[in-house]
Amino acid sequence: MIEARGLTKRYGDKVAVDDLSFTVKPGTVTGFLGPNGAGKSTTMRMILGLDRPTRGTALVNGHPYTHAKAPLREVGALLDAKDVHGGRTARAHLLSLCQSNGLPRRRVNDVLELTGMSEVAGKRIKGFSLGMSQRLGIAAAMLGDPQILMFDEPVNGLDPEGILWIRNFMQSLASRGRTVFVSSHLMSEMALTAQHLIVIGRGKLLADMSTQEFINQNSSARVRVRTPHAEALLDALAAQGTTTRKVDAFIEIDGLTTDAVGDLAAKHNVTIHELFAQRSSLEEAFMEMTRDSVEYHATVGDQQVPATVGGAQ
């Protein structure tokens, strides 16, 4: 169980994390979602006691993490896979961590095997690829076989094989009842792994709900239609008070089913060439939610935010 209570971090004038309160429930994968620069890493560092909150507290299993008796038994964390001394071998790195908590030495071999790193255990870390570093970081997190695992952007920069490995790994942890708190700026990634979502933007809490709830609340059904009689159809839709917009060769309609649009077209003698329902993706829902809170906007206004987001054009 991780609890943040009014967690705030200021760097001079800049507020990185702004009065954040949430609870990560045991036995689930909780996605910690937000655009780059939203304050996810800072929040995780405060939970681990690496950064001091300007205000508020973070509790792990009911106490500040810095009071943990055997810290690696409580939390395993992977923040940045490249945060290791490259001059050490993988085995020496893991051994030093293992010894620091008085864990049995055999755990080093256990976690090397678990992450498929046994072969390179004697190699110096500076020669590792990002994927290997990521596995090493996960090996270190698993040393104490902790109940809580925290991963910061674990799939960032990985090749598809690495992404798949991490995704499966997190799911297998959750299936064994572990609490997994994982951050990402990719909604699609979270939709695959997380049962619960905590969404932040500019350090503020935007949503704290189950993934299913998030999808239901944030993705709206839209219908797209292509017709040579666009004017007639638009008039008919306008008469009903329906919101529409032009998207390329299509008319996009909010709040009606394909059935209703088809019936309406028939009633007004409108020929239809194409008619289909379009459910906005989770990624779009996420971008919609965080649009006002992204740190750096792309210069091309609608580059990443397609017309389905609405209104913009």
Binding site: K69, G102, L103, Q147
Partner: peptide
């Protein structure tokens, strides 16, 4: 929350003995 009811994991650790002391940290360093 279905996973929360999953059986606890057998860790194989004796937690009464797993308590970090200064000697552990010295060995690590």
């Amino acid at each position: 929350m279905t996973a929360a009811t999953a059986a606890p994991v057998a860790t194989g650790f004796d937690d009464r003995r797993t308590r970090t002391t200064i000697w552990h940290v010295i060995r690590s360093e």
